[in-house]
Simulated scan of single mutants.
Amino acid sequence: MTGEDKAPRTERGRRTLRALLDAAAAEFGEKGFHESSVVSITSRAGVALGSFYTYFDSKESLFRALVNHMSGQVRDYVAPVLPGKGDQIDAEGRALSAFLSFARKNKEIYRIIDEAEFVAPDAWNAHYGTTVERIFERLKSAESRGEIGGPVDEAHAWAIMGMNVFLGLRYGVLGEERPVDEVAAIVNGLLRNGLQA
């Protein structure tokens, strides 16, 4: 996240790093990358300016680390709900419900990930690439268990991720009027049955 040489070695250092990442998420989420400054981020975090450079070389390196951190947060938020009753389509519904809940609590992720395409394209690519890899692996495993028809293609994983991203935007950021499980049930019906009459 910060580079091997700048990774915190103490609990206090880990707390400082978390404070910087949390402050950066709020700052970049509100103001965007270009309008945010290291000074405003450290002030928001309650961290001395000099401490910032203990962990990051620049605002850009902090932004890149934040994108990686947020991507990891999504993964960690969704992973525990994947095991459970039913088949892989049921699991994908639980994953979507969890992601929508995450998006509602972390609305800034959309602005940050969108900006990452231009500010930190490597982190942006990694965010979407690793997400698709995880979905694709789940689908291939489900295919091998006979839970879904095949052949499963990477395009299926991109389609599911694309739906999830835009559903998170609509029902996580733009409005919260529908229960996340209701939205997930609609999408699960689409995954299970398609739109064919």
Rank of each mutant, 00 (worst) to 15 (best):
S141H: 15
H69L: 00
K107A: 04
G29I: 00
F28C: 04
R104Q: 05
T16V: 10
N68I: 07
F99Y: 14
L195I: 10
V119Y: 04
A157W: 04
A123P: 12
D22Y: 14
T42Q: 03
R15T: 11
I148T: 02
G150R: 04
E143Y: 14
F136C: 04
A79V: 13
S36H: 02
S101L: 12
A103P: 04
G189D: 05
R134E: 03
E108P: 08
G162K: 08
L20D: 01
H127I: 07
I186T: 11
E177G: 10
G146K: 09
L167A: 06
L62H: 03
S51Y: 14
E117C: 09
V81W: 10
A45F: 01
L49F: 11
F118T: 11
D76Q: 11
N68V: 10
N68K: 09
V47Q: 02
G194D: 06
A24K: 00
L17F: 05
G189K: 13
F56W: 11
S58P: 11
Y128I: 09
H127W: 13
I186C: 08
T54G: 08
T10H: 11
V74D: 02
P80S: 04
N125W: 15
G129I: 02
G13D: 07
G168C: 06
R15L: 06
S51R: 14
S51T: 09
E108A: 03
V132E: 04
R111A: 01
L21I: 07
K59V: 01
K31N: 12
F63L: 02
K31P: 13
E27V: 00
P8E: 06
R104A: 03
E11H: 15
G146F: 14
N188G: 09
A23T: 01
D181C: 06
V165K: 13
K105I: 12
R178Y: 15
V67A: 01
A197V: 07
I113M: 07
R75P: 05
A157P: 03
E154P: 15
F118N: 11
P121Y: 03
P151I: 02
R75G: 12
Y77P: 10
L62Q: 04
G50L: 09
E117W: 15
E137W: 15
E30C: 06
T130M: 08
L82V: 03
E143A: 06
S36D: 01
L20R: 00
L190T: 03
N193T: 04
V81A: 13
E27A: 00
F33A: 00
K6P: 03
S141N: 08
A65L: 09
